[in-house]
Design a protein around this nucleic acid. Structure first.
Lengths: 122, 122
DNA sequence: GCCATCGTCAACCAGATGGTTGACAACACC
DNA sequence: GGTGTTGTCAACCATCTGGTTGACGATGGC
């Protein structure tokens, strides 16, 4: 199983049923039965989905008699947002710089052989 | 295979190797060989990863002689950010409203038997 | 034309995933 | 105590996934 937290969160949300559960849990807490109701699968399957979400830290389950109210832990979503935004912004930045380079360039762009991008330090 | 675009993007980024590729592609375009170099897997495996990223719309491949430069298509990341932020904000909103309710509540909170609201600092 | 290079395709394999059904634990209600 | 409700566990199954190796298409350099 995916060890790192980020992979678990991404994987958990890669399933439409689980995303729908998260969407509904954003509105209000719910029991397993309530969550299962709209889907055409067994309660056991829903329970499995919840386990995946719980392992990813996206939900927590408490106890109320026989019922297990499920609660959305939205903070984990920040993890993803931070990751995504970091690289989106980086890519954007790159375009901006490319535009600058092109703007500053004289018109003799006759030879642009293989990899026009210069230093690759990393 | 996952039909809906959002599932494909989430699934694509659920793998650490693919996330690393995206991170590197945010800096600069690269060929398949260049991308494969740091990882201890075959070039074929990397090619498969790229296919997953491409199916998710995260990268595009052009052609330069025998080489296939890979380019990050960062716009798709917005899809995810929008989904995530929507529900994170919704959940936050819910807490805010709950706080209002609690604040407006009289003090006879004598019986709150079910969930003591303890910290679950995962 | 011939060869080296870059990358993909195809077949295969082990392990994860999402679903099923059946059994059972925990609890409320009578 | 017996019964119904709620949810989990276990076993099983089909499919997907990430990796491998081997063959081969596409292209540039000689």
């Amino acid at each position: 199983m995916a060890a790192d937290p980020l992979s678990r969160v991404f994987a958990a949300l890669a399933d439409p049923t689980r995303r729908d559960m998260v969407a509904r849990l954003a509105v209000t807490d719910a029991t397993v039965g309530e969550l299962a109701e709209p889907y055409d699968v067994s309660v056991q399957a829903v329970s499995k989905h919840l386990r995946v979400l719980e392992d990813a830290g996206l939900v927590s389950r408490s106890r109320d008699a026989q019922r297990r109210p499920v609660h959305l832990e939205a903070e984990v979503l920040d993890l993803m947002t931070k990751w995504i935004e970091r690289y989106r912004r980086q890519a954007e930045e790159r375009y901006r710089r490319l535009d600058d380079v092109l703007a500053a360039m004289p018109d003799d762009t006759s030879d642009t052989p293989t990899t026009p991008q210069g230093g690759n330090p990393s």
